[in-house]
Design a binder for these strands. Structure first.
Lengths: 333, 333
DNA sequence: TTGAAAGCGCTAACAA
DNA sequence: TTGTTAGCGCTTTCAA
């Protein structure tokens, strides 16, 4: 392994000149730069990450804590993760992957100076990781919205607004009997931020617009979807519109509705809250409030970089939800 | 941030003693150890990862290159990734996540001494990354099997054997008209290791056991599944058993077969090649050759550690496939 | 059983 | 525009 001194010797300059050529932190004359760049190429030189981190207090690595449990919505998580990783790379950052069952890991990698910042997914209303994160010297960006952000940055879809928008879109079409097939009971019980907020927005719109509404939780499986549909139809046999906020169950919900005489969109309108590609790939394309997972991941990284490079203060960014029409919602018959 | 010198001062010992208490690389008297440990606790000391890497040439990080494209089988990938991450943690290692479209990343993180070893998924027969990996000073473990491992370690399910076993299991039940609904055409076209090997094992068993067989590729979507089933039934209207090696399409294949009068298992036996939980969660539980993704991830890390700690030579480990009976295969009527 | 001290390979302040 | 050099915080050899 060639070192910076080897490069300096080979180019006939000092080590600091090599360092500055690499970092661009001071002007270098063209001929010098060219000699150094040639030496770097010739020797196949790569800076030693550890040495760099030690001297500069920068690792160019961010930690990403993702819930890799298989029960949650793998597809959506993957989109967040790719959003974070590809965006991080565009800033010349790498990503260290932590999993949910490794909460101590956040402190470990931060205190051990392995990372410059942390991005944490799957935030709960009273998330126990938040006090830990608030005490770290590295900035943290939460994907989700806790009750008390405690000075941490947050980014997410405005799920409150999405719940509200979903109801008002359907009410605007004339629906007055609206069902919500939502997250699994366990997700709601641990007060997962997005699930709770969507439900809140749903309820507030229901109260405001004076429509009839029923909410049922739904396990992320075919069986769960069928059960949820049955519960919904029992509670509200004359339902004319259904909001589905459960990507895994989505196709099974639509199928179960159809089998019970509620074809979409003829008899029952369906409005999904899920990533665009999922809504689009259904047998019947579904009108949806798109969940821009990839974008959220990217924005999280951009906020990270803003805090690192311009020590911009923490902020909360909630992306505005939009209804994307794909033909699965229409006025009730 | 407390440093090792702060700890040493606070405990009244030298820095080397603190270092040795931490690493256990030389015996320390009980009283000294206790004083040091107390100082560490009191100061909340954490070794600086970069300094450690610089001095010891060890980062305790492995790189994991995973295909995070959404078109591939997200669920299976997730199981590999969790297997790798949780297993790595048990060896006190962290995981740096690289994505497929960042092939230069392997060289970058290895040459920059960011990682001690690399685990690479989604290997193709003539994978262009292999010469790069073979030239690195860090050991690499491939999940998959290239034509020429070039001295790299490999681990995977024995897909050749799985293809063979699938056919012989069905032939053993009396089937002589067997279909294979496999990977997407694109996956086969880029000679992805597992897809190609399963197909090879399938064909060799077909030749050997003298049964009639048809293979159709299958896109990973509902539409793709329906098309694949239609192609299969056109080519072989009297098919009595179907092997499905496409986890995403699996539920839609079974549904499409049923809609065409080929209910499982009454009229058509179905044998899946997929993770156990997927086979189990189908509306009709499916007999399968389980794809132990989590285990393969774990084994990959174990092989990594064996090479790092005992510089054991490279080897190829192919896990033996087994048929797990769940009732979806039976003799033809 | 412990300590002293020489690096590991870089960055950046200071100097020219 | 470039060079000199003092660290950054560890590990490990050598010495006691």
């Amino acid at each position: 392994m060639a070192t910076i001194d080897d490069v300096a010797r080979s180019a006939g300059v000092s080590t600091s000149t090599v360092s500055y050529v690499l970092s661009g932190k001071r002007p270098i004359s063209a001929p010098t730069r060219l000699r150094v760049e040639k030496a770097i190429r010739d020797l196949g030189y790569r800076p030693h990450a550890g040495a760099r981190a030690l001297a500069s207090n920068r690792t160019n690595v961010i930690a990403l804590m993702a819930p890799l449990r298989v029960d949650v919505n793998v597809n959506v998580i993957m989109q967040f993760v790719t959003g974070v990783v590809t965006s991080a790379r565009s800033f010349d950052y790498d990503v260290l992957l932590l999993t949910q069952d490794d909460a101590a890991g956040l402190d470990r990698v931060a205190s051990g100076s392995m990372v410059d910042a942390l991005v944490v997914m799957d935030i709960e209303a009273e998330d126990p990781r938040i006090p830990v994160l608030a005490g770290l010297r590295q900035p943290t960006i939460l994907i989700g919205l806790p009750r008390q952000p405690q000075g941490l940055s947050c980014v997410d879809l405005d799920f409150d607004g999405a719940g509200h928008l979903a109801v008002s879109h359907l009410a605007g079409l004339g629906h007055t009997k609206i069902g919500l097939i939502g997250s699994p009971a366990a997700v709601l019980e641990r007060h997962t931020s997005y699930a709770e907020r969507l439900l809140r927005g749903f309820r507030s719109a229901v109260a405001e617009l004076d429509v009839d509404a029923v909410h049922v939780s739904c396990e992320s499986s075919q069986t769960g979807a069928v059960e949820a549909v049955d519960r919904l139809l029992t509670d509200m046999p004359d339902v004319t519109a259904v909001i589905v906020h459960n990507e895994v169950a989505l196709p099974y919900v639509v199928a179960a509705l159809r089998e019970r005489g509620c074809s979409t969109p003829e008899n029952v309108s369906v409005l999904a809250v899920c990533p665009a590609d999922v809504a689009d790939a259904q047998p019947v394309p579904l009108t949806s409030i798109d969940l821009p997972a990839h974008t959220i991941g990217r924005v999280a990284v951009e906020m990270t970089m803003a805090r690192l490079d311009h020590d911009q203060p923490a902020e909360t960014r909630l992306l505005t939800p939009h209804v994307v029409e794909r033909g699965s919602t229409r006025p009730p018959r």
